Computed example of a mutant assay.
Amino acid sequence: MHEAESGGRLARRHLLLAAGGVLAADVVGVGGRGGNAWAADPDAVSAEAGRDYVRLVNPWVEADRGRFFFFQSASNPFGLMKLRPDTSTNVPWGTGYRHDENNVKGFSHLHCWHLAGVQVMPTTGASVSKLQGSTGWQSHVNHEVGEVVEPGYHRLHLDRYGVTAELTCTDRVGLHRYTYDDAGRSEIIINLGGVLGEATMKNAHVTKVSDHEIEGYVAQVGNWGGCTHLPAVFQHPIRQAV
């Protein structure tokens, strides 16, 4: 288990650096917040630097009994971005990413009190139906095989599509890396409608800006409401946007 966690933390560093070096590796190693730089005593600074508090965090705590936004993996302390998979999304309570559920419906970027969105799902093979919502494109995942969950990083395998998904983030940007078992046709679904835990997404609008970028917005209907803006950049060219 420790080897898997260490590998995950190393993969998080590599994923951030591959995305343009948004964060320095030493910053990532302490959860994106830096050390206790204002401590006056050098010995105290040295002692603090030797303590890995991040390793003490267990993101699974209360995941199977809490609320939609309780489980947080690819997120920073006090950051806006709360990126992680979703296994159930139909109501605020008793949903989210649960260890006792094995169908992933997508990867959503916002999981906050009365706020949710935007959900993304990679697929392979023949185009899947979009009319059934997330239940039509969901994929089985085995929590016991190959999954790494730790603060700031999440890796799992979508068995239906043969895709290994890795997630990490900066304070305001979610980063995805998909590794495909086999070459072939693939899609990335961006879900901008329906209930997503804490809110209902409506009145979305998306524009293709270039061969690698889209932007848009979606209304959040809930106790608070508001509008979530969507800029998304892809490594490979967008062949078709529908």
Rank of each mutant, 00 (worst) to 15 (best):
M1I: 13
H2F: 02
H2C: 05
A4C: 02
R12P: 03
L15M: 05
A18I: 10
A19L: 09
G20Q: 11
V22F: 11
L23C: 07
D26G: 12
V27R: 10
G29S: 14
V30N: 09
G31I: 00
P42W: 07
S46L: 11
E48H: 01
G50L: 00
R51M: 14
R55S: 03
R55Q: 02
V61T: 13
E62F: 13
E62Y: 14
R65G: 12
G66T: 02
G66S: 13
F68L: 06
F71W: 03
A74Y: 10
N76S: 13
N76P: 06
F78T: 01
G79M: 07
M81K: 10
M81V: 09
S88A: 09
P92I: 06
G94E: 13
T95H: 02
Y97P: 00
H99M: 11
H99I: 03
N103Y: 00
V104D: 02
G106A: 11
L110Y: 06
L115F: 03
G117R: 08
V118R: 03
V120N: 05
T123M: 09
T123F: 03
G125A: 11
G125C: 05
A126M: 09
T135Y: 07
W137K: 07
W137Q: 08
N142Q: 07
E144P: 01
E144S: 14
V145I: 14
V148M: 04
V149M: 10
Y153S: 13
H154G: 01
L156Y: 08
Y161M: 03
T168V: 09
T170K: 08
R172T: 14
V173N: 04
G174R: 12
H176P: 01
R177H: 11
Y178M: 04
T179P: 01
D181G: 06
I188H: 01
I190L: 13
G193R: 06
L196Q: 14
G197E: 07
G197R: 07
A199I: 00
A199Y: 08
T200S: 09
K202W: 03
K202S: 04
A204N: 03
V206K: 08
V206Q: 09
T207N: 15
V209R: 12
S210K: 11
D211T: 14
I214N: 02
G216E: 01
V218N: 12
G225T: 13
C227Q: 12
T228F: 11
H229I: 07
H229M: 08
Q235A: 14
I238S: 13
R239D: 05
Q240R: 12
A241G: 06
